[in-house]
Design a protein around this nucleic acid. Structure first.
Length: 834
DNA sequence: CCATATCGGGG
DNA sequence: GTGTACGATATGG
């Protein structure tokens, strides 16, 4: 026996006959295969496979009869297929929704036996955990942490296994033991891939017909574009081959030589890898890039396609961005160009991909060269994205404790759910089943009340202090023990301590901690620890990603309770959380009023108070008093002081608008919330006017001056004195021009671009100016370059841009913005008489 | 108006 | 393969 230092990166399994048993009747058994990096004799890290035998699939049955008896009978159940069998049963004491139960662990020979035998087992009671994939089950049960350092004692492989090893591309070890020695991580080796294909039909792509023309690979100190039509070039990364067949062969060789831990692409689950696989199949080429000599597996399900490679983690950056990163991104268009722009601040070269097939067919060397550069750029951007997101993907992987391949494709609800499943085992809890379709559609119907909003009286306020609850919903779950297994317990019927406010009879146990609160406590505490270390250690990408991962889990828990597909779904819990939340913020508002503060505004987890001459001590006293009365980890934080702020009304009723205000900080920074005009695509002139108007009101406290300022702008615009550059309206095209139902001005502008040979497709930034005329607006749209100074339509900009941007603000002071628009007549009359 | 279908990403 | 999306928007009834 020898020692092996090993970083497991991916986990899979194989089902094969017992290697030690050479008889034809040998038993089938699963072998876990861990792929990763091992420290070799020369101290270098090299790819390796570690096999683990002896872990068996199982599921649970909570029997409706006596447990020992059920155990005996379950031992006897048989599947149609005699190769699938029960190898043993055990009775355990487990927890299920807060109750101690006797459960039978039904252990079977191979994973495929679970799906067959669970049907038979249903006759004996409730079947649980029969839908947890085997590799995940292994990681959860063995507490395996991916990418961390493990020491393992390995034994020499038997001769049959050695035979097996010849199929493997990496050295293979067998082990019976894995123990984590440190959290130290291996920095994964990443290779990005991108292909360009023959595209005579535009977006319609037919892998059976259209060949791959170019393939780019990009890694650490490695970049390559393979293509099979030659042209003169100075570009050192281009490698010419003679045919598509040779391109595929070389691609395979390069990947093998580079030896990546991670192969990444953009939409490569659905496009690049399946396409390469399809082309290879057509030529009968074995695309055996898997470390066990297997080909990429394209798995298509009803609504999702993934591509898996044994031993190499395939990361589709697009999937991770759309499922997890979207919440922190501005862009709503997830093409590589928009995403790279926002995350990396790197722009993509403008290349008209529609023309690629023509350049190829006509053997246009110069153009082909630029397409090669474009191909490489896409691979480079994908690599950069993957590198940038790697700390987040790794920390999520290490937090959830499942394969990186799986975690990088999970939505928030799945991340929370699998975190809970892993924790469930630690707390001896049984994992509930997923809802049936019928149950799911029932759940979809229910809705409930959200956060509390204290409606503001429109107006200009001075000296505002803002407070908010730190992680309101996670701390409520913890403080009030909100969990399906503590809901309406029989031991606390008359207790008022955790009674849900406003609910006739709903309460949570005050004696026994629930499963979810226990888990969320741990998450919050871990995050606090990480943040402390972070504070002491300074900026650290890994630690920051770790606290983000924990924050993600904690913040998703409330939404998870109300998510129709959740195993731990509980609408009563979701309702209770918002009810407790409303109650707490209302109590804070009450306490503030009792202390003599004037309440301006409040929303879900925050309150805005007018200081009205009160001191810093008064504020501190108030916060201290509130926090003394709050249960558990709940905490009201002082968010900030604002010398001035404006709250506007809604259009119809003139009542205070929710989530719509502007504040100025002591440092003079203006914070604008919810003015839809800020979000909408406005011209620079309208944005500038809105900002300046708010600035004058908040900074100088002088609404009259703001109105005068706006009048001046209107007069300048009307006099055509404003620079055309400020009239440019910028929007992003969401789809193909032809697919727009309503032909709005931005679509007209996009068409104009296209007519001039400028590519304009989904994601393209469209810039246009509306010029004078009596036609429809869309017929008066011009590109900025086409517009002469003073050619813009003043009335359009005044009525559709400037006035809407400021009218709600002026409403607060009783000023009718119609007067602004009517400035014309006054000016003219003045000129006439003046 | 509500219910159902399609799309996104990739070339 | 012990399992699989989802939310927005357009179109149809």
């Amino acid at each position: 026996m020898a020692q092996l230092d090993f970083y497991p990166i991916s986990v899979t399994y194989k089902v094969e006959k017992n290697a030690a048993d050479t008889a034809p009747s040998a038993e089938m058994q699963p072998t876990i295969e861990l792929y990763g990096r091992a420290i070799a004799e020369n101290n270098q890290l090299r790819q390796a496979c570690v096999k683990y035998e002896g872990f068996r699939p199982y599921f649970w049955v909570i029997p409706s009869q006596e447990a020992e008896e059920a155990s005996q009978q379950l031992q006897q159940i048989k599947a149609e297929n005699p190769e699938l069998k029960v190898t043993g049963t055990e009775v355990h004491t487990k927890n299920y929704f807060g109750k101690e139960v006797k459960a039978v662990k039904v252990i079977v020979n191979i994973p495929a036996a679970v799906s067959q035998l669970r049907e038979k087992a249903k006759e004996f009671g409730t079947v649980l955990e029969a839908d947890i994939p085997f590799a995940r089950r292994f990681m959860i049960d063995k507490r395996l942490m991916p990418v961390a350092l493990y020491k393992t004692e390995f034994t020499p492989l038997t001769s049959a296994a050695a035979e097996e090893e010849r199929k493997s591309k990496v050295p293979t070890y067998a082990t019976q033991m894995l123990s984590q020695v440190s959290e130290e991580m291996h920095e994964p080796r990443i290779l990005a891939i991108d292909i360009e294909t023959h595209n005579p039909l535009g977006k319609t792509m037919l892998p059976e017909e259209h060949p791959i023309l170019m393939a780019a690979l990009c890694g650490e100190g490695f970049r390559k574009v393979l293509t099979w039509k030659k042209f003169p070039t100075q570009l050192d990364y281009i490698e010419f081959v003679n045919s598509e067949v040779e391109l595929l062969e070389r691609l395979k060789q390069h990947i093998e030589q580079y030896g990546p831990d991670i192969l990444t692409g953009y939409f490569s689950d659905v496009f690049d890898l399946p396409y390469i696989r399809a082309r290879a199949e057509r030529y009968k080429i074995r695309l055996d890039i898997g470390l066990d000599g297997s080909q990429p597996r394209v798995e298509k399900t009803a609504a999702n396609t993934t591509t898996d490679i044994t031993g190499i983690v395939h990361i589709d950056v697009f999937k991770f961005i759309r499922k997890v990163m979207f919440s922190s991104l501005q862009t709503t268009v997830y093409d590589l160009s928009s995403v790279a722009k926002e995350i990396l601040n790197q722009a993509k070269d403008d290349v008209d991909i529609d023309q690629l097939y023509m350049a190829w067919d006509n053997h246009h060397g110069e153009q082909l060269e630029s397409y090669c550069a474009y191909n490489l750029q896409d691979a480079q951007l994908t690599l950069n994205l993957c590198r940038k997101l790697m700390p987040n993907i790794m920390e999520l992987t290490r937090t959830i404790g499942l394969p990186m391949f799986d975690v990088s494709r999970m939505s928030y609800s799945q991340l929370v759910e699998w975190y809970l499943i892993r924790q469930a085992r630690e707390f001896n809890e049984l994992t509930p089943n997923r809802p049936s379709n019928q149950e799911e559609s029932q759940r979809r119907m229910t809705s409930y009340t959200g956060g509390f909003v204290y409606e503001p009286t429109p107006g200009l306020y001075k000296d505002i202090v803002v407070f908010d609850f730190m992680s309101l919903y996670p701390t409520i779950i913890s403080a009030h023990n909100v969990s399906p297994d503590t809901l309406n317990c029989s031991c606390c019927v008359n207790s008022i301590q955790n009674k849900v406010p406003g609910e006739e009879s709903a309460w949570f146990c005050t004696k026994r901690r629930g499963f979810i609160p226990t888990v969320i406590d741990e998450v919050i505490k871990r995050r606090i620890r990480v943040k402390e270390i972070l504070k002491a250690a300074g900026e650290d990408k890994t630690l920051n990603a770790r606290q983000m991962a924990l924050k993600t889990i904690a913040n998703s828990m409330y939404g998870y309770f109300g998510f129709f597909g959740a195993r731990w779904y509980n609408i009563e819990c979701a309702k209770a959380i918002t009810a407790f939340g409303r109650n707490h913020i209302q109590k804070v508002i009450e306490q503030a009023k009792n202390k003599g503060f004037r309440v301006i505004y409040g929303d879900t987890d925050s309150v805005f108070l007018a200081l009205d001459g009160k001191t810093k001590e008064d504020v501190q006293g108030f916060v201290a008093e509130v926090n003394k009365s709050l249960p558990g980890m709940m905490e009201l934080d002082y968010e900030g002081f604002y010398p001035s702020g404006i709250f506007v009304g809604t259009k119809g009723t003139g009542q205070g608008a929710k989530k719509k205000y502007a504040l100025i900080s002591e440092e003079g920074r203006i914070k604008i919330r919810g003015f839809e005009t800020v979000r909408r695509n406005l011209s620079t002139i309208a944005k500038e006017t809105q900002e300046k108007v708010l600035d004058i009101i908040l900074r100088e406290n002088n609404p009259e001056a703001a109105i005068e300022y706006a009048k001046g702008i209107v007069s300048d615009v009307r006099g055509r004195k404003t620079a055309t550059a400020k009239m440019v309206i910028t929007t992003q095209l969401q789809k193909e021009i032809s697919s727009y139902e309503s032909y709005g001005p931005h679509v007209a502008a996009a068409q104009r671009m296209k007519d001039q040979g400028i590519p304009a497709g989904p994601g393209s930034v469209i810039r246009y100016v509306v010029v004078t005329g009596s036609e429809r607006i869309r017929d008066r749209v011009k590109l900025p370059e086409e517009v002469a100074e003073g050619e813009y339509d003043p009335e359009y900009y005044i009525n559709n841009q400037i006035v809407p941007a400021v009218e709600k603000i002026f409403d607060v002071f009783g000023y009718d913005s119609a007067e602004l628009a009517a400035e014309k007549t006054q000016k003219k009359l003045q000129a006439w008489f003046g």
